[in-house]
Amino acid sequence: MKLPIVAYGDPVLKKVGTHIDQDYPELKQLIANMFDTMYHASGVGLAAPQIGLPIRLFIVDFHDDEEDEPQYKKVFINAEILEETGEPWNFNEGCLSIPDIRENISRRPKIKVKYFDEHWVEHIDEVKGMPARVIQHEYDHIEGKLFTDRVSILRKTMLKSKLDAISKGDVKTDYRMRFPNKSKKR
């Protein structure tokens, strides 16, 4: 099932996610719905806060044909980034919760991340390149951060009217969204 994606301005996007356990209700179906939602929106990652759930869960499915990289598809439950290493590099990032805005964001190219997969097997992986960047972006979501929090104050001020418009629903997307400040039609 395709779920609505929560838009910029919704308080759930600023909450630090809570840990979940194996008894989390309908977790398998939630993960399947998140993949359906992400694919429908042409995303490469999606975090539970983006569908309105303040929990520590995100998914990633990244593949770059141009770089001949293998597909990197994983579920991250209760993730914790243990290390970020390497020379920071800028890349133009976007977010399904903040459509039509892209900004250069600096991140480190290599991470070590600890998490549980959908079968509750614990992993500690070292990841580099674009998959590491996608994980860092989604990890920010479960920490209550958005990529716009990583831009300069001046740049964020310049984006304010666009961000306000998104929160009010003044944006067009090919996927369903839930807007925190959309006025109700009478």
Rank of each mutant, 00 (worst) to 15 (best):
E83S: 10
T18F: 04
R155K: 15
D117T: 10
G45N: 05
L53K: 04
I77Q: 00
N92G: 08
A41V: 08
D149F: 13
H40L: 14
I153A: 15
I142S: 01
Y8I: 02
D174M: 10
E87D: 10
D174C: 10
M1E: 06
R56L: 14
D61N: 15
Y72V: 05
Y115P: 02
F62D: 02
I98C: 10
D100R: 15
P4F: 02
H123C: 08
R133G: 05
M130R: 06
L146W: 06
F35C: 08
G94V: 03
R56P: 14
E67I: 11
V121I: 14
R178F: 14
R150K: 15
E80S: 10
I166W: 00
S167L: 05
L13N: 00
F58G: 01
S42N: 15
I153M: 12
E83V: 08
I101L: 15
G9I: 03
S167M: 07
I153D: 14
S97T: 07
K74F: 03
I105K: 02
F58L: 07
F147C: 08
S106Y: 00
T148A: 06
I77G: 00
T37Q: 05
R186T: 13
K145T: 06
G129M: 09
D23L: 14
D21G: 11
V60W: 00
G45K: 01
R133A: 08
K112C: 13
P109S: 08
P4A: 02
D100Q: 15
G129W: 03
F76E: 01
D21Y: 12
I153K: 13
L53Y: 02
V75N: 03
T157N: 11
A165E: 08
Q71I: 13
P25H: 08
H63S: 11
D149Q: 07
A79W: 01
R155V: 09
F179H: 12
K185S: 09
Q50M: 10
V171S: 06
K28D: 11
Y139V: 11
A7H: 01
V16L: 13
I51E: 00
I81M: 09
G94R: 02
